[in-house]
Amino acid sequence: MPASSLTLGYVPGGTPAKWARIWAERHPDVPLRLRTVAAADAADEVRAGTVDVAVLRLPAETSGLAVIPLYEETTVAVVPTDHILSAADELTTADLAGEPKLLPLDDVVDWADAPGAPVDHRPETTESAVELVATGIGVLIVPQSLARLHHRKDLTYRPIADAPACPVALAVPDGPQSALIEDFIGIVRGRKPGSSRAQTQPTPKRTAREKTLAKQAARAAAGKVARKPGRSRGR
């Protein structure tokens, strides 16, 4: 029996609204269920079948999964609005050297030698770390979408010019995919309605007999046209 719905897991900061809208237009009878998943658990959720597909952050342990790169996010530093670093439009690692830095336990930025001096306390979550930034304890380095997600009026963020980007990908179970998952992958990749991998397969070759019959039919049609009488010019 075909699946009656598709479940999409996405990490905090993910923005599946556009894909959900397109899905609803193309599959009005098949709900797309959205489920927020922790960044550290996203791959496991797909392997366990809790979600059918997931938007996750890389790097991640993706054994048993097929991974489709989507885009790369800008890495930013979150600071209080009155912080000296907020005066610049863009920062560099040199600007952040020596700055007290918050490193939450759910940190997702893959930057081993990130600038800044980690403070002793490690908040449980990025959301908690953002609240501590507002108290002036330290700066926070995150993907831009997380800075937007946890925006506060007393905070701002600036891109770090020489920081590594934060990759985002779509993960699906490895191996043959269901028609619904294939359709969702098509939406993510921007394929138009009605397009599919099946339509891109080459046309099967005709057998020798089929070719002979086609030639005979073409000759017969040509003969009929040649024998067709023309219109009389006289009365």
Rank of each mutant, 00 (worst) to 15 (best):
155 L>N: 04
115 P>R: 06
134 A>T: 08
102 L>N: 04
108 V>M: 01
138 G>N: 04
185 I>A: 03
163 A>P: 13
190 G>H: 03
103 L>V: 07
169 A>G: 10
119 V>A: 03
133 V>M: 11
198 A>E: 15
190 G>F: 07
165 A>M: 08
129 A>M: 00
105 L>M: 15
173 P>S: 13
110 D>V: 09
198 A>Q: 12
107 D>S: 13
144 Q>S: 04
119 V>Y: 05
141 I>Q: 06
197 R>W: 10
183 D>C: 03
188 V>H: 09
168 V>K: 10
124 E>P: 00
186 G>A: 03
179 A>T: 05
164 P>L: 13
136 G>L: 01
171 A>P: 14
197 R>C: 04
110 D>G: 03
195 S>P: 00
181 I>D: 02
170 L>E: 12
140 L>H: 11
133 V>Q: 03
115 P>A: 05
135 T>D: 03
176 P>R: 02
161 A>R: 15
109 V>R: 05
115 P>T: 08
123 P>Y: 00
144 Q>D: 02
188 V>D: 02
175 G>I: 03
184 F>I: 06
126 T>M: 12
181 I>E: 12
110 D>S: 11
122 R>E: 15
168 V>T: 10
114 A>F: 10
189 R>N: 15
139 V>N: 01
178 S>R: 10
125 T>A: 01
108 V>K: 11
182 E>L: 14
179 A>R: 04
197 R>P: 06
103 L>T: 09
119 V>H: 03
178 S>H: 10
191 R>E: 04
156 T>H: 03
196 S>Y: 00
185 I>F: 00
146 L>H: 06
196 S>K: 09
159 P>A: 14
120 D>P: 00
151 H>S: 14
157 Y>P: 07
195 S>Q: 04
160 I>M: 05
190 G>R: 01
196 S>G: 07
122 R>Q: 12
189 R>C: 02
131 E>G: 11
112 A>Q: 12
109 V>G: 12
169 A>H: 12
171 A>T: 07
195 S>I: 05
142 V>Y: 06
134 A>L: 02
180 L>Q: 15
129 A>G: 13
182 E>T: 15
167 P>I: 11
113 D>L: 14
171 A>C: 12
126 T>R: 10
121 H>R: 11
162 D>L: 09
186 G>N: 02
111 W>V: 02
119 V>I: 09
128 S>F: 06
192 K>C: 08
191 R>D: 01
139 V>K: 11
142 V>S: 05
151 H>T: 09
113 D>T: 15
105 L>D: 12
120 D>I: 08
193 P>W: 06
163 A>T: 13
162 D>I: 02
135 T>H: 06
113 D>V: 09
159 P>D: 14
133 V>P: 04
120 D>W: 08
152 R>K: 14
136 G>C: 08
195 S>Y: 04
172 V>G: 09
188 V>K: 02
180 L>N: 08
181 I>M: 12
